[in-house]
């Protein structure tokens, strides 16, 4: 489905007048229909990987394959049209564009109000209150975050990448968020990649990849990786 092959990403740090390696030879495969959580310490390169998958960042070297095709040089639009979707960690605000407008763009077609309602209700928003709202400063960070997730539900992409979806939605229970991902995987039958620190999200993953210092430190089945990440959990289990 998706393969990152020997991905390097280097940026120049003007303050220190030197090149900094954000990613240093990342190799990662995501299979068809797989649910993978990418985790690891802050600053390790997780979000950079997510942006490289979507084409928002171009790697310094390495290749990206999607459904067998080399998409390394494909731009964001091209990747979106091939079936890659992305939910931002910090969703963008638009003066004038309404929630309904973005849902229609995400769905790629005209959708009726009822369909839009289905997407919004999945993220715990009452459509009647939100569908005509502008995506501007009047929406809270948590509301924006849920709308961002609803957009990816509406897209029904073969590969959905969520960059820290849990951040800022503390008022909405994780249980619902987890249900959204499970439903998404079940109904769209696509692959899901989630950048997350949250144990409850990792618990529903097929596999977990740990990124640290710009490299894949570990990747494996949830049952193998999760106990190492959260030793306290093992204790609880034993108790």
């Amino acid at each position: 489905m998706l393969e990152l092959r020997d991905i390097y990403y280097e940026v120049h740090d003007d303050d220190e007048a030197r090149d900094v390696n954000i990613l240093r030879g990342v190799n990662l495969k995501i299979e068809d229909g797989e649910f993978m959580v990418i985790t690891g310490p802050n600053g390790g390169g997780k979000s950079t990987i997510a942006k490289i998958i979507m084409g928002i960042i171009k790697p310094t070297s390495g290749q990206i394959f999607f459904q067998g095709e080399d998409i390394t040089n494909l731009d964001i639009t091209g990747r979106a049209r091939k079936g890659i979707g992305f939910a931002f960690q910090a969703p963008v605000r638009f003066k004038g564009l309404k929630v309904y407008d973005l849902l229609k763009l995400a769905a790629g077609q005209e959708i009726d109000v009822n369909t839009a309602c289905v997407y919004l209700s999945q993220v715990g928003l009452c459509a009647a209150d939100y569908i005509e709202r502008e995506i501007n400063d009047s929406l809270s960070g948590g509301e924006l975050k849920r709308i961002e997730i609803a957009l990816l539900i509406a897209r029904k992409t073969a590969l959905s990448v969520f960059d820290e979806p849990e951040a800022g939605i503390d008022l909405w229970s994780f249980k619902n968020l987890v249900e959204v991902f499970e439903k998404q995987q079940r109904e769209v039958n696509g692959s899901i990649v989630i950048i997350s620190h949250q144990e409850r999200i990792m618990e529903i993953a097929d596999r977990i990849a740990v990124i640290a210092d710009g490299k894949v430190k570990e990747v494996g089945a949830k049952a193998d990786i999760l106990p190492e990440l959260i030793p306290g959990n093992q204790v609880c289990d034993r108790i």
Partner: peptide
């Protein structure tokens, strides 16, 4: 980042600009 967001929904840069202006 507004243009990038609409590109991730499948719009080209020109389409994204047009949509943002029309919405604005």
């Amino acid at each position: 980042d507004q243009i990038i967001k609409l590109e991730t929904l499948g719009l080209t840069e020109a389409e994204a600009e047009e949509r943002i202006v029309a919405g604005f």
